[in-house]
Design a protein around this nucleic acid. Structure first.
Length: 863
RNA sequence: GCGAAUGUGGCGGAAUUGGUAGACGCGCCAGGCUUAGGACCUGGUGGGGCAACCCGUGCGAGUUCGAGUCUCGCCGUUCGCACCA
């Protein structure tokens, strides 16, 4: 074993060993228990970023740990390689998205390999390859047959200058990002998937996912948004036409407090009213130019306009004025709300602004209601007042009575409404999976027959920002109708990239199968035992994957499971300080932290750009991103200090589900620790082979070290295996190493204890820093490869202690410590505590009223 | 706006089931060593106080023998909001 720790050589050697022995290629083996450990596949954006390093290191630690626990571990990797950034890069560089994407994959794959992840590369897939996306198309056609996929119109952001559909992120302050033109809402035909048919099951099953974080389950439940309420009909007669305006409410008990109704700008009644009302038509146009993003709709100023029409209250028969409101969503409920200003904060605000009546009809514990200003309790449940026959009823009784009356009048009924909407998958983009449809003038939209799949996306086009380039590709467009054989036009919309990522985890089980989407190997590997990815995917990707898995079950393609991911781990974001300067034009320019020196002058932190010596301002510690130029290139770190240091720091600096702050000093600390471990092993083995450990002859000091070593092993096993708190596992090994550095090496028995303790330290850290531990294991005299070693078990005998220290409190405050024998009964502990001189001092002058003993831990004397 | 998290020394964080607040690391201070290294080693380091002790986990209340942990109210930060992935 050499004296110096040289990460480059050590890591190359370990990786060569794993490659030569194909250590991580796995096959189905029914005699062994499988473990499918999956990290969310990356979008090939160019180079790896720290978020990837963190994500894949977490997965790798779990995979290696489970492998040492004896499981048949599958850890695959692939590329989520369709999407908008490739089109943007194509426009910027004049390179086709395909070339840009494949180049990025090559770069990032070599970076992943340099980090030493235990990946089975033989199963690699990329969603932009026809071998993958042909099965998207095939599955889409099956859903079309089943009625799960269907066509209807949907609203998109339309840039009138570029004549193109924009993604939400391409709309900045209501304008197109390239043209600056005011974006319009436009309704176009699209394909949807009926995820709402699965809403009940998707919601109910959340209760049976104990391996998922509570917060993700809560977010999904709220997203699905089941509300039980009443659909209320407000009859009207407008221009001689009779009809009923339906509004959904969860507060039917407040129906007697209705003072207006409001509909969305797209509602048919709004359109009708606008026909003879130019001012209203202009307002509706304004609403339609407004934001499409729910967060912006909810935060914008609430605006409305009276239609001049009114509807009739179903129970009182009174006229209720009808308004158009910019806060009413067409996509939720009926696109209309009944306005009860007295008991709904948004309605209150709206009524105050437009001088509508506020009519309190709920009494909450007799508290006085004032229409002056909104109080948070106005929205609480209570008893009906000022409500005629419903007076005195509580919430549930009132809802029951109102809905029964409405039902009798055929003007309403109890109803369940979901917030979840069907999933629109059509995208007017080039770089995605073509939707396999052919448009025939005679036959309409005709599915592409299975034997014509895949519909291959041409890979040589370069988008220019104005519309989908497929629309100009004659070779792609031209086709014949499968039904009538006449010339027809190919669909140019592609699929949402969330389709690609909704089932890739199934495909890893059989990515080499060119004849079917999935096969029997899925039964062995699925469901995924541990899924790891960013918290930002908590809702959409994870919900779509749960939906897709159910659909594939209904199609009879997979059996035995409905939930794709048994355990879910959501890792936090990686943050770093960002530095900027305002240019003379007021533009903000960001500088990479690697080019900035921070020092302390006169007690104040000063950041200076190295290039020009000028001061830059700090924007604080924020998420690493391209736009803030505060990313750290993992490759630089790997080249300078090695993959193990990169892995150790990202696992040590924060608990994995929380945000991680980058720190160059912290990285040095991680590197220093690996060097200390190396040195400890080097010094130990330099003195020759250690004698076998004779456990019967250990001194108290030796027993104590051995106890700590086994205690550490137990803690690491629990921290990695159950708690997934890798930071505390590492801290425990650091403590062990600190103790070992103070442990004298005088007798052969000392060296035996040391050998065992160092082996525990090396094995414990091996899932986290696999390269250096691979070398150290050899250094400690083993001819085996550490990756093939079983995870050791704790020697219970080593943990035994003859006496324990207990804390003594007086009135809850720490006053003293006592040492008692390990199994001492309560009476002995009481006496020892009361006899303690320090305790005596604090109980003098009072009487002991109570004495609480927590065995093995603490005594509290209450005076 | 709605939903979900989160808040502890100079900094990242620990305290797993209501039981010693600050493990471990960074930084800083003091000393040592020197083959001057990306050094390394030893000791110290929440605040106040000479001390005995006192104070201390975003703010304000509460439950309890005992609260960083539980309950209620407020404030700040972060993530998501359906076409970024």
């Amino acid at each position: 074993m050499q004296e110096r720790y040289e990460p480059a050589a050590i890591e190359a050697e370990a990786q060569r060993y794993w490659d030569e022995h194909r250590s991580f290629e796995v096959t189905e083996d029914p005699s062994r228990e499988k473990y499918y450990c999956l990290s969310m596949f990356p979008y090939p954006s160019g180079r790896l970023h720290m978020g990837h390093v963190r994500n894949y290191t977490i997965g790798d630690v779990v995979a290696r740990f489970m492998r040492m626990q004896g499981r048949n571990v599958l850890q695959p990797m692939g590329w989520d390689s369709f999407g908008l950034p490739a089109e943007n890069a194509a426009m910027a560089n004049g390179v086709p998205p395909a070339k840009w994407t494949l180049d990025n994959i090559a770069t990032m794959k070599s970076q992943l390999k340099a980090l030493g992840f235990a990946i089975d590369w033989s199963r690699e897939l990329a969603t932009c390859r026809p071998e993958y996306y042909r099965w998207n198309q095939w599955l889409f056609l099956r859903m079309l047959e089943k009625g799960i996929a269907y066509q209807k119109t949907g609203i998109v952001n339309w840039d009138p200058v570029d004549k193109t559909v924009l993604a939400n992120e391409q709309v900045i302050d209501g304008r197109g990002w390239r043209t600056g033109a005011l974006v319009e809402r436009r309704e176009i035909p699209m394909y949807y998937l009926k995820i709402t048919d699965f809403a009940e099951d998707l919601l109910e099953a959340l209760a049976h996912l104990p391996g998922w974080p509570e917060r993700v389950r809560a977010m999904q439940a709220n997203w699905i948004g089941k509300s039980e309420g009443v659909r209320i009909g407000f009859p009207y007669e407008i221009d001689g036409v009779r009809g009923v305006l339906h509004a959904f409410t969860t507060r039917a008990d407040t129906v007697m407090g209705v003072t207006f109704c409001a509909v969305a700008a797209e509602h048919p009644l709004a359109t009708h009213a606008a026909a003879g009302n130019a001012e209203l038509a202009a307002f509706i146009e304004e609403c339609k130019r407004g934001p499409t993003i729910e967060a912006e709709i909810a935060t914008q100023e609430k605006k409305g306009m009276a239609t001049g029409l009114s509807v009739r209250h179903p129970l009182t028969g009174e006229d209720v004025p009808l308004w158009v409101g910019n806060y009413v969503l067409m996509s939720y409920g009926e696109g209309a709300v009944m306005g009860v200003p007295a008991h709904d904060e948004r309605d209150f605000e709206f009524a105050k602004k437009y001088g509508l009546a506020v009519k309190p009809v709920i009494d909450v514990d007799g508290r006085p209601y004032s229409t002056e200003a909104w109080q948070s309790w106005y929205g609480e449940h209570g008893r009906c007042v000022n409500s005629g026959k419903y007076d005195g009823l509580d919430f549930q009784a009132a809802v029951d009575a109102v809905s029964a009356d409405l039902e009798r009048l055929k003007l309403g009924e109890k109803r369940i409404t979901w917030r979840l909407r069907d999933w629109g998958i059509s995208r007017q983009r080039y770089w995605g999976c073509p939707i396999p449809i052919i448009h025939c003038e005679a036959c309409g939209a005709v599915p592409v027959p299975d034997d014509q799949l895949p519909v291959v996306l041409p890979e040589n086009l370069v988008p220019d920002g104005s519309g989908n380039p497929l629309l100009k590709d004659a070779a792609f467009l031209a086709c014949t109708c499968p039904r009538c054989g006449r010339a027809a036009r190919r669909e140019t919309d592609t699929m949402d990239t969330f389709v690609d990522s909704s089932w890739y985890f199934l495909r890893y089980a059989c990515s080499d199968n060119q004849r079917s989407a999935v096969d029997e190997r899925v039964r062995y590997w699925l469901p995924v035992d541990q899924y790891i990815g960013g918290i930002e995917h908590a809702i959409l990707h994870l919900l779509y994957s749960r939906f897709w898995t159910r659909v594939m079950g209904e199609l009879g393609l997979i059996v035995g499971f409905k939930e794709p991911f048994t355990h879910l781990f959501t890792q936090g974001m990686v943050l770093n300080e960002a530095f900027f300067r305002k240019t003379e034009t007021g533009r903000i320019e960001y500088f990479n932290p690697a080019d900035v020196d921070v020092s302390v002058r006169d007690g104040r932190r000063v950041a200076v750009l190295r290039k020009d010596g000028g001061v830059v301002e700090s924007a604080g510690v924020i998420t690493m991103s391209k736009s803030k130029n505060n990313g750290v290139d993992p490759q630089v770190l790997v080249d300078e200090l090695g993959a193990d240091t990169a892995r150790l720091f990202t696992m040590f600096a924060a608990p994995p589900e929380q945000t991680l702050e980058w720190s160059d000093e912290g990285v040095q600390g991680a590197f220093r620790f690996i060097k200390r471990l190396w040195k400890a092993v080097y010094e130990h083995v330099s003195a020759g082979a250690a004698a076998p450990l004779d456990k019967a002859r250990l001194s108290e000091a030796q027993r104590s070290i051995r106890r700590q070593a086994h205690h550490t092993l137990g803690k690491v096993t629990d921290d990695i295996g159950r708690r997934r708190t890798f930071n505390t596992a590492i801290a425990a090994v650091m403590e062990l190493l600190n103790a070992l550095s103070k442990f004298p090496q005088q007798t052969p028995l000392d060296r035996g204890v040391m050998q065992e303790a160092l082996e525990i330290a090396v094995i414990s850290l091996s899932p986290i820093v696999p390269h250096v531990t691979h070398a150290l294991w050899r250094g400690l005299g083993h001819s085996t490869a550490l990756i093939d070693e079983p995870w050791p078990s704790v020697d219970a005998a080593a943990l035994e202690q003859s006496s324990v220290q207990m804390v003594v409190q007086v009135n809850g405050k720490l006053r003293s410590h006592i040492t008692v024998s390990a199994g001492a009964d309560e009476e002995v502990v009481r006496k020892a505590a009361l006899a303690d001189a320090h305790v005596q001092k604090f109980i003098a002058g009072g009487t002991v009223r109570k004495l609480i003993v927590v065995p093995g831990k603490l005594v509290n004397v209450v005076v």
